[in-house]
Structure formats: C-alpha cells, structure tokens
Design a protein around this nucleic acid. Sequence first.
DNA 1: GTGTGAA
DNA 2: TTCACACAACGCGAG
DNA 3: CTCGCG
Length: 330
Amino acid sequence: ADDRLRHASFRGLREDKPVREIVRETPKPATVAKPQRRSVRLTHPDRLYWPDDGVTKEGLADYYVEIWRHIAPFIVGRPLALLRCPNGVGGETFFQKRAWKGLDGNIVLAKDPKEPSEEPLIGIRDLDGLMGLVQSAVLEIHPWGSTLADWERPDRIVMDLDPGEDTPWTAVIAAAQETRRRLEEAGLSAFVKTSGGKGLHVVSPLTPTTEWPAVKAFTKTIAEAMAADSPDRFVSTVAKAKRRGRVLIDYLRNQRGATAIAAYSTRARPGAAVSMPLAWDELSAGVGPAYFTIRNAPRRLASLESDPWAGFHAAAAPLEAPKPRRKTAA
DNA sequence: GTGTGAA
DNA sequence: TTCACACAACGCGAG
DNA sequence: CTCGCG
Ligand SMILES: [Mn+2]
Ligand SMILES: [Mn+2]
C-alpha cells in the first residue's frame, strides 16, 4: 500500500535500487502478534513530524511498535538523552536529559549516583515508556553506553565515524573496516550500523567489567593509532577544519554521560532516516548512511533471514588490559 | 508538549 | 477559559 | 579562558 504523499519537490531521493538482500521482496510470514500500543494516548496523532516525508506522530508510534523487539535492548534500562521536536522537523528542537514536569508516567526517573542533588535523568522500561517518548515528541533517542544496573561500567563501545567535507562514502566504509580490525585484534566483536545521519557507527558489546576512564582510554588509543598510521585518511580530533577529505574517528562517545544515537532510532532530519544495523558485507556504495528510513526499515526487518545483530549481546567480551605487544627476550 | 499565571 | 510564555544539556578537547 | 562540537 503506497500511502501518504511524498513531496515531489524533495530531491536527493534515493532511487530505490534494490540492493541485494537489503530489502527483500517477499516478507517472511508474519505470525508473531505485534505488541499493542497500550495506555499511552497520543495527542495530535496526525501532526506531521516529518512534513517532507509525510510521516506523522502516529506513524512514528507505529514504527516503534513494529520494531520494538529490535530496539528494546538498546534503549531499555539506560539513561537517555532525548532530542525533542514538538512541532516536527523544521520546528524548534531541543535536547533533554533530565526529568521534566508533567512527564509521562511510563518514563522512569533515574538518579545519577554521581550527582545526588541534581534532577534525575530519564529512562524507560517497556514499550509504554517508548510510547511516552513518542507522545513527548522525542524524535531521537541517545542512550548512554552503560546501564542503570551499572552506571560506571559500559556494556558497549561506539566508534562514531564522521566524514568530513568531500570525503567519499567509500572512505567511511574503509574506516569502519579498519576500526573493526583493531577492535577484533583487542578481542572484541564489532558490529556496524548506519547512523541515519552522515556516517557509520562501529559498535562492540562489552561485559561490564571495566570502568569508563579505561574504556575511554582504550578507544582513544585506537582512534589515535588510526590517525597516526593514516594521517591522510583519518583524524582523531573533533576540530572540523582538519577533516576535509578524511574521516573523524570520534571516540568521545565513550565517556561517562556521553551518548550516541541508538540503533533503530529515528533521526530528526528530512528523510526520516533511522540508524540501521547492518551485516558487514552489506556495506557498499549503494547503501548510504541515511538509506534506511521509517518507511523501509520495518520491511527490511520483517524479511531478513537473520538479524545481522542477532548475536550482539552474546558476543559481549571483557576489555582486557592491553597486552604487552610481545615479550622481548630479556 | 506541558505547566503556569495573567488577562 | 484562553492564551502568551517559559522551559526543556553539558562536558570535553583544542587553541 | 572561550569556543566548537556532538
Ligand atoms: Mn560524531
Ligand atoms: Mn556520527
């Protein structure tokens, strides 16, 4: 069913070239009952949150109900930073990390043990919580890398790969592969997703055994090594001036309190893209960072033989103290 | 999107 | 009752 | 210290 209008004026549209298995024709028989949207009522369900794309508030809720089982492990039980856009993309937007007056009852308060006198942070427990976020006009969900069960020991690393101006997409793919190599060399597994914006994220699941400062130091070492080994391809500092033609290896997502866009979260930009987990062999010129959207993501997930990130949580490994490179005799 | 307080 | 208005992050690294 | 950054 081809629904809702697409503005003909929206240029830069991907001409849905079928990319191998990325989005399959025949959906798998859908048998599992979808979780129903329950107690949370949406005000203004027909309000356009992505006006250029014809996506409404209710469309956003439908998307999250549909992909709930995929997104849940990445957003439940963690402090969340939120990007809210009550008037949709194009209207005023603001980040919010602390509880507010009148927040939905399904959104939980989480007092940061490191700042007992501050307002609590925000979390969710279940689909109703996510629906509460939708009702609050949350268009982007940015979780911490650690959980409410263990604030100080992250259970994932994110290497955020951002192309500079004039950096070809193939260079971002190469950066992801190089990042993967180095993470695996350290005994970790590495998974890749589009960011829904301009780049890629390489994500490693961790067993939460190492505290933030050591985790950050580890990721900084990787970023700086990459920049040192290929100064023409990579930079590890955020200053934009030096990025042209290169890829920023942004390791600073890996600090206490820092966040990165969640897998499957929508982005508050024209196009209604989402951050989409991929298999490594799906990386290609034809699948850009914003290829997957609210519209085509559910189709992809319903038709995939196997979720490329199915093994994500089982693949968690401890971050070992960096081994001495090789022991030199004597 | 929501609570507040003035009109 | 209506409506204008305020409010909703913040820490880090570079220079 | 201010500024840019995400
Ligand atoms: Mn970044
Ligand atoms: Mn990025």
